[in-house]
């Protein structure tokens, strides 16, 4: 308990907050890694995932690829890339992109796949073009799962971004490495508390976002559905995602 108080005291000490190596700046770096890596990963993974989800082609490759990439040890990737790219922010950023691609890819294609085939058939039947089917049906209905993918990518990267300090890339890990090496555990704990808090806050924001992006039609349909269910299956508009409930 004493140690925990020491950690909090470290966070509150103004001497540790400002300047280029204060935690304000390091927290900014942690966030920059997180959103930078997730944004780059999204640019790669979302179009790819949509392509796989829409056409249904290459699904096996996408599944095994995203599974395989998840198994990569981040520290190993970081050191390998660090040897090629040198120390600094490039190697960690690329490592975190590699880390963020699988969940986003999975979220993107799973979102498309989760759309009921009959809904898509109906969209075609009313005369929608292929691009309208994607834009007006598959993307909005698949959005909650995509946000879910982004959410887990953000969570993984924000926690792993502490590794950046290993190759002189800054971020909150700098305090953790320095604290462990010099037996300044208040510093280590303070930085860990900051990382944990940051992860929880981001997780909360994404959980909220994920709820908000469920298309209104789907939510309204579900709220009205108070009658006893018949035993026959009926056509329904997509499957609302109830994550976090």
């Amino acid at each position: 308990m004493n140690l925990l108080l020491d950690g909090i005291a470290w966070i509150l000490d103004p001497a540790n907050q400002t300047g280029p190596s204060g935690w304000f700046a390091r927290l900014g770096e942690q966030l920059a890694y997180t959103f930078g890596a997730v944004a780059i990963a999204a640019l790669i993974a979302v179009p790819l995932g949509y392509l796989v989800g829409h056409t249904g082609r290459g699904r096996d490759i996408a599944v095994s690829l995203s599974g395989g990439f998840r198994a990569l040890p981040s520290l190993g990737v970081l050191i390998l890339l660090g040897l090629g790219l040198g120390i600094g922010f490039k190697a960690p950023l690329l490592t975190f992109v590699v880390l963020a691609v699988p969940p986003i890819l999975a979220g993107a294609y799973a979102g498309f796949e989760a759309v009921d085939r009959r809904t898509i058939d109906a969209a075609r039947a009313v005369g929608m073009t292929e691009s309208q089917v994607i834009r007006k049906v598959e993307v909005p209905l698949g959005l909650p799962l995509l946000i879910g993918g982004l959410r887990s990518a953000v969570l993984q990267v924000v926690a792993t971004a502490t590794l950046a300090a290993y190759v002189s890339g800054g971020a909150l890990g700098a305090f953790i490495f320095a604290g462990v090496a010099t037996r300044d555990y208040a510093q280590t704990l303070g930085a860990s508390i900051l990382v944990t808090t940051l992860a929880l806050v981001l997780e909360g924001i994404f959980a909220l976002l994920q709820k908000l992006v469920v298309p209104r039609g789907v939510v309204a349909k579900e709220l009205k559905d108070v009658r006893a269910r018949s035993s026959r299956t009926r056509a329904v508009m997509g499957t609302p995602i109830r994550e976090g409930k």
Binding site: I79, L83, A165, V167, S168, A178
Partner: peptide, 10 residues
């Protein structure tokens, strides 16, 4: 510049 591999390859 902190590099955390104890004088290793990095």
């Amino acid at each position: 510049t902190p590099i955390e591999d104890s004088g290793g390859p990095l």
